[in-house]
Design a protein around this nucleic acid. Structure first.
Lengths: 156, 156
DNA sequence: ACAGCCTCCAAATAAAATTCGGATATTGGT
DNA sequence: ACCAATATCCGAATTTTATTTGGAGGCTGT
């Protein structure tokens, strides 16, 4: 199966679909210089092979009433497997936590957290996140403004 | 114009489209309990009003050869407007930097950076990011694993 | 050179989005 | 409570788009 190797056309397809997932197959085929049939075939292959995982709508956070985004560095009470697992399970139950990464460096985890405003954020931290048993301490970085948020990976 | 207020059906539409942007209008209409015509009308209104900003394909980073993701805390050489502007302009030119946020707390900026592997990452830092004139120092957090990466905002 | 495989295209078909006219609700003013 | 204006809805026709099909090159390895 050739599903593993990407040629130049595949890369172009991926770049375009990362930028604009709603493009029609006909338009996509023009931009990559093929006819619609093989274009569709390539896209389907990228989807079924798992290179394209999913498609998502991106919302304007301000417009839906979510004005505050933060990164939170979390230190846990220990580093046993059990502690991490319980923490991660708790994190999964909190929809305001939209990312949770295990990281190197100071702190054990980095979260990305969304809230309506600062006071909602305070409540969220006090009543939900700092209430997680495994959390020893947290340090918040509030996003003042975002200068770049690219949805397009630089495919090597 | 009622384009500003979201009712319960709009929220459902937004949740579904954040989860799966490729759903057909017919299927979406079933899930929200309306017929296709008004369903489409709602989606179009959400798009033209700017609440839905865009649609993106999400790729499997490993599968496209991008195995390393990091967060980088950046401290600049000063805090004048000019310094920040030059820095941000430099950042925009580097495709491996996929996010750039101005934040509170220690450090001035937080970047999200993608690379093929650790050694590519090292080269990127040495030759591109630490070469930006306005950068005084950087501190990297390498993502060891990601436990949650939700594309669905909890709309209040 | 040729068998096997892959990629491509044009055209037919199937599916989906979009438009349209009009019925039914909702809202705001008196 | 009434009425007019507005917004929302539906079913069905129309247009656009996706998908399938059959077959024509072209590349690879022998």
């Amino acid at each position: 199966m050739s599903g593993t190797k990407l040629d130049q056309i595949d890369r172009k397809v991926l770049e375009i679909l990362q930028t604009n997932a709603k493009i029609t197959n006909a338009q996509l085929s023009k931009e990559i210089g093929l006819s619609p049939a093989p274009t569709l075939e390539r896209v389907k292959k990228l989807e079924t092979s798992g290179i394209i995982q999913s498609y998502h709508a991106q919302l304007n956070r301000e417009r839906v009433g979510l004005g505050v985004t933060t990164f939170v560095q979390v230190t846990l009470v220990g580093h046993k497997k059990q502690v991490t697992e319980s923490f991660v399970n708790a994190v999964r139950e909190i929809p305001e936590i939209i990312e949770c990464h295990h990281i190197t460096g100071s702190g054990d985890f980095l979260l990305k957290v969304i809230a309506r405003d600062i006071s909602s954020y305070q409540v969220l931290m006090l009543e939900k996140i700092n209430e997680i048993e495994e959390v020893a301490s947290t340090q918040t970085m509030v996003i003042l403004s975002t200068f770049k948020e690219s949805k397009v990976l630089p495919i090597p």
